[in-house]
Amino acid sequence: MTNTSILVEELLTSAQALDVRDVQITLGSSCIVNHMSFSAHSGELLAIIGPSGSGKTTLLKAITGERPYSGSIQLGGYEIASLSPEAQALARGVLPQASHLSFPLTVSEVIGLGILDRRQGRLARAHRIAEALALVGLPGFEARTYQDLSGGEQQRAQLARVICQVWDPVAADGTQRWLFLDEPVSSLDIKHQYQIMKLAKDYARRGGGVIAVMHDLNLTAAFADKILVMKYGAKVQHGSLENVFSEKTLTPTFEMPLDITRSKEGTFQVTPQLAELV
């Protein structure tokens, strides 16, 4: 391999990354995210964990273009703030934390909003919507009214909308797409928690990038490739499971004594030390 080809490869790799450099986000006079720097790569599922109020969602909102920030956030080599909403919409889908509708759309109408290609015919759309619903475990829910669904079903219907928006993890021109998920499994039962996390992991395996804000440490341990630990708006640690899943890191972060064990298959298991609590 020549030097030039290595250089090109490096450029390509960096272009497919999400690069956060020295990002600061303030609300009024308080600083919510402080000098945050990290990189995420397509093909990986990055989980952001940390106690409530640590700035995880705010950081994600800066990455999704919702919040002004200082510093630099580059997606595929482009500064987020300089990308048009249309361009961002093609590059990434966002699953927000809470979703309520102002009007009673049906499930298929909600998901249809995620299909950006307006040249797609009605049959193709209907087919895509059915596929997406099957993926999130809601087959045949098209004609249901969104507001009549349970919280967990609503969350999965929203995920189906987001999946439709960035259906192919790698676009036809080779650019990778991203899924930004804010607590994607917060209102799901255990079966669907695993189903949805598997779906996200699969998206990354097929070449897309996934960033998920997570609360459940065991789910994080089971599915994340990389982990960013936050507290007080700052980075505590960023790295692989082996680096992050230690009592030394997690116990002070969550201010709770935690036992971390590893199964024979190598999966980390986090359990609170109950004796200390009583």
Partner: peptide, 10 residues
């Protein structure tokens, strides 16, 4: 869907 989600879809 809300203002934020509308912006997310472009």
């Amino acid at each position: 869907l809300g203002e934020a989600a509308a912006a997310h879809i472009g």
